[in-house]
Computed example of a mutant assay.
Amino acid sequence: MYDEPDPPEQRPRSLPTADFNPDRPSRTRHGRRLQRIREEIERNRTEGPSIPTWVLALVLALIVGGFVAILVWA
């Protein structure tokens, strides 16, 4: 008969090379969006919360408790 040809060598897929430099603004829409996200995260890390978490938790508990009280006694 005839010999089957050898299958082509399996080369590993090359990943796209990323030209990632956070200091240089990107020109694409995706890059600009990532830059805005990075800037917002940095702002949130440096400024910190203006209202303590325990105050927010207390306000939430009062709202939920008031709603439950209205449902029970109405």
Rank of each mutant, 00 (worst) to 15 (best):
R24Y: 07
R24G: 01
R24I: 15
P25I: 13
P25L: 08
P25V: 13
P25K: 05
P25D: 12
P25M: 08
P25Q: 10
S26D: 12
S26T: 03
S26L: 01
S26E: 11
R27G: 13
R27D: 08
T28V: 05
T28N: 08
T28R: 02
R29H: 10
R29E: 14
R29I: 15
R29Q: 11
H30W: 01
H30G: 15
H30R: 05
H30F: 12
G31D: 07
G31Y: 09
G31V: 02
G31L: 02
G31Q: 01
G31M: 04
R32W: 00
R32I: 10
R32Y: 09
R32D: 08
R32C: 00
R33C: 09
R33S: 09
R33Y: 10
R33K: 06
R33I: 15
R33A: 11
R33D: 13
R33G: 04
L34P: 06
L34N: 06
L34W: 05
L34A: 12
L34T: 09
L34K: 02
L34Q: 04
Q35E: 15
Q35M: 07
Q35A: 11
Q35W: 04
Q35V: 07
Q35C: 07
R36V: 08
R36W: 02
R36T: 06
R36E: 05
I37Q: 06
I37K: 02
I37P: 06
R38W: 05
R38N: 05
R38F: 02
R38K: 04
E39Y: 01
E39V: 13
E39H: 05
E39M: 10
E40L: 14
E40R: 10
E40V: 11
E40A: 14
E40I: 12
I41D: 02
I41L: 14
I41N: 02
I41T: 09
E42H: 11
E42Q: 14
E42V: 14
R43K: 05
R43D: 12
R43A: 06
R43G: 09
R43I: 01
R43C: 00
N44Q: 15
N44W: 04
N44A: 12
N44I: 08
R45S: 14
R45L: 15
R45I: 14
R45P: 04
R45V: 13
T46Y: 08
T46C: 12
T46E: 12
T46S: 13
E47S: 10
E47C: 07
G48M: 00
G48S: 02
G48K: 00
G48H: 00
G48E: 00
P49T: 13
P49S: 10
P49Q: 13
P49N: 11
P49H: 06
P49C: 03
P49K: 07
S50V: 15
S50E: 15
I51L: 06
I51F: 01
I51C: 01
I51Q: 01
P52R: 07
P52M: 09
T53Q: 06
T53L: 05
T53D: 11
T53Y: 02
T53S: 13
T53M: 09
W54D: 13
W54N: 04
W54V: 00
V55K: 04
L56G: 07
L56D: 10
L56N: 04
L56E: 08
L56V: 14
L56W: 01
A57I: 10
A57M: 04
A57G: 08
A57V: 10
A57L: 09
A57N: 01
L58A: 10
L58T: 04
L58V: 03
L58R: 01
L58E: 06
L58D: 08
L58G: 04
V59Q: 07
V59Y: 01
V59N: 06
